[in-house]
Computed example of a mutant assay.
Amino acid sequence: MAPRRKEKYKLPVPLPEGKVLDDMDGNQWTLGKMIGSGGFGLIYLAFSTNKPNKDARHVIKVEYQENGPLFSELKFYQRAAKREYIKKWIEQRKLDYLGVPIFYGFGLTNFKGRSYRFMVMERLGIDLQQKLSDQKGTFQKSTVLQLGIRVLDILEYIHENEYVHGDIKAANLLLGYTNPDRVYLADYGLCYRYCPNGNHKQYQENPRKGHNGTIEFTSLDAHKGVAPSRRSDVEILGYCMLRWLCGKLPWDANLEDPLAVQTAKTNLLDELPQSVLSWASGSSCCELAQFLVCVHNLAYEEKPDYQKLKKILNPNGVPLGLLEFSSKAQSVHVCTPTLPKAVSHSRPVDPSLLPCGS
């Protein structure tokens, strides 16, 4: 009998440890212990039956077949993030790595009369939210800027493949399991194909869909119910970096009121660069002020200048080293600004006119 609609998005009944799953390519995977759950699915450690290893290097995500997020994530990997595509991109762009998790396979399995969809991925380490908690809510400025550059590399890749992520945040950024000095953007279950077959979605506000996403970081377009675009992703990244550096955002006290958050973000962006410079110790946020100026000047369908954004975050072109997380949290003086009402600039601010302090 078909499941009732109200059960559609329930977490699935856990599969037993040791169950063997056959993917669509004929590979077999043995389920290890369950290590997480979220959204509509479960996550297990996994072992290839062909190459047994006591230390699991893979995970398997499972959900009921009729659920949507894992299906959407699977489509993203099949269309845009196959291993050979990523390898070619890394070679063409001369990158040391690209922080998109490796996809190994997928399939269907049955348990207790229900059909499950599963997807096999590389195992990753802890997320940045845990790192933030360990460091009293902030990262060192050099770490924040390097994280921004690494995420820009990822965003450029997925944007060129017709997708936007839409939910960039510390909880979705994971360090590598075998290489914890690298960062990966995970969770593509809610990603959006903004430009199917080269046709960009049109700008259209829809109040019924307003305020989607993680309220602290979501873009102004999302607050207005506009479908996400490339500028949404880089705007979200700007808010994330501001939070990682300062430990909080100007609208944190109003998270229960989406309209107040939207207004505060509008004020912040319309009063750039001073709004950001005054938020935390003046020039200590200069790069982020420049970054957000560039983002705010983007048109809805415009392609971000990723190289320019990365240069803002690394003006001296210093080669990126290993990601480092200090055991001592830095102290950043955060002001409580009284932001004026939103006022649109008569002309865009040129970020090159914002010299950064040392």
Rank of each mutant, 00 (worst) to 15 (best):
Gln135Val: 01
Glu160Met: 14
Lys209Arg: 10
Leu128Ser: 04
Gly321Asn: 01
Ala81Ile: 02
Thr218Gly: 01
Gly32Ser: 08
Val293Gly: 03
Gly176Pro: 12
Glu301Ser: 15
Pro207Met: 00
Lys141Val: 04
Glu162Thr: 14
Asp270Cys: 11
Tyr116Gln: 13
Thr49Trp: 01
Val151Glu: 00
His333Thr: 14
Asp167Lys: 10
Ala222Asn: 13
Ala260Arg: 12
Met34Trp: 04
Leu313Ser: 02
Glu301Thr: 15
Asp233Arg: 11
Val164Leu: 11
Leu15Gly: 02
Lys131Ile: 14
Gln129Met: 11
Lys54Met: 14
Ala46Lys: 00
Arg114Glu: 15
Arg57Leu: 08
Tyr85Arg: 08
Ser352Phe: 00
Val295Asn: 03
Leu237Gln: 04
Gly113Asn: 12
Pro207Ser: 09
Gln202Met: 13
Gln262Thr: 10
Lys94Tyr: 06
Phe103Val: 06
Cys195Phe: 05
Leu74Ala: 05
Leu242Tyr: 01
Ser284Cys: 04
Ala280Phe: 01
Val234Ser: 02
Tyr188Arg: 12
Ala56Asp: 09
Glu205Tyr: 02
Lys54Asn: 14
Gln28Tyr: 03
Tyr184Lys: 06
Val276Met: 03
Asp305Gly: 08
His333Ala: 12
Ala2His: 13
Arg243Ile: 04
Pro180Thr: 05
Pro273Tyr: 05
Leu74Ile: 04
Ser283Ile: 03
His211Ile: 04
Leu15Lys: 06
Thr109Pro: 14
Leu245Asn: 04
Thr266Ala: 10
Ala227Cys: 05
Arg79His: 14
Leu70Met: 11
Val120Lys: 00
Phe291Val: 03
Lys341Glu: 13
Phe111Met: 01
Lys8Phe: 03
Leu292Gly: 09
Gln28Phe: 00
Glu160Leu: 12
Asn199Arg: 15
Lys33Cys: 15
Leu354Lys: 07
Lys131Ser: 07
Lys51Ile: 13
Val151Asp: 02
Ala222Gly: 01
Leu323Asn: 12
Asn27Lys: 12
Leu309Thr: 03
